[in-house]
């Protein structure tokens, strides 16, 4: 089978892979920030809630998280009279990955926040800044720079985890490749999967290049 033909089939799944990646990343970032805020809160209630979430999610394999989302979430929400039967497989995929990566990102954000030198906050206070200005102008920008290496690793991990959505019957790059391999009775299996691996590798290279640029831009602020 020609390389071009295999690549054409694999790339049919690229839009779904990229949609899964971008939506999960955006939503997991928002949720991760919220969890970080809860974890750093003074109230024990919010801390406890965040800890429970983080423990449960971090202890669940991503594959299982996707299956639980797909089969469990509609049942759970039905109990409170919310019907999500119209959700697409892609939405369940995004949901499952968002839950998982929100927990990982929350930990990355928290450690980045805590790694900002306490002297920075003291200096901000000493020049008369209020807590809000100190947080948004001094602390969070520095925490964001500190978080970059861990976030980069997690984004790369998420690229690879998108391939797990095959369990939902969603046609991303992996599922397209696996399907093609089955259709040809496994004769071209190695060729197909090597090309698939190279495609993932290329995406990861692009992500690494983007992060390299971001890190370079902010290098002087670290």
């Amino acid at each position: 089978m020609s390389t071009v033909k295999i690549l054409r089939v694999i790339l049919r799944g690229l839009p779904n892979t990229l949609l899964l990646l971008s939506w999960s990343l955006i939503l997991a970032t928002v949720l991760g920030m919220l969890l970080t805020r809860m974890k750093l809160a003074k109230g024990r209630f919010w801390q406890g809630l965040a800890n429970l979430y983080l423990n449960l999610v971090r202890g669940t394999p991503p594959l299982l998280m996707l299956l639980l989302s797909y089969y469990g979430l509609p049942v759970l929400l039905k109990l409170i009279s919310i019907n999500i039967e119209h959700w697409t497989r892609l939405m369940f995929g995004v949901f499952g990955l968002t839950i998982g990566w929100s927990a990982y990102l929350a930990e990355a954000f928290r450690s980045a926040y805590l790694s900002v030198d306490p002297g920075q906050l003291e200096a901000a206070r000493s020049v008369g800044m209020n807590n809000r200005d100190a947080l948004f102008r001094i602390i969070l920008p520095q925490a964001a720079v500190n978080a970059l290496p861990n976030v980069e690793n997690l984004v790369i991990g998420l690229v690879k985890a998108t391939s797990l959505v095959y369990v939902l019957g969603l046609f991303d790059m992996y599922n397209e490749a696996a399907n093609l391999s089955n259709q040809t009775a496994g004769i071209h299996q190695l060729q197909i999967f090597v090309l698939l691996a190279l495609t993932y590798w290329l995406i990861v290279l692009i992500i690494e290049a983007i992060f390299r640029q971001i890190r370079k831009h902010f290098a002087l602020m670290a």
């Binding site: 030198d117 002297g119 920075q120 901000a124 000493s126 020049v127 800044m129 102008r137 920008p141 720079v145």
Partner: peptide, 22 residues
């Protein structure tokens, strides 16, 4: 401060101006 504690994400000029502004 002993360790200067200049704002790492601000330039020298911004470091001086920050307290005046905020």
């Amino acid at each position: 401060f002993q360790n200067y504690n200049l704002f790492k994400n601000k330039t020298a000029q911004e470091n001086i101006a920050e307290g005046l502004i905020y």
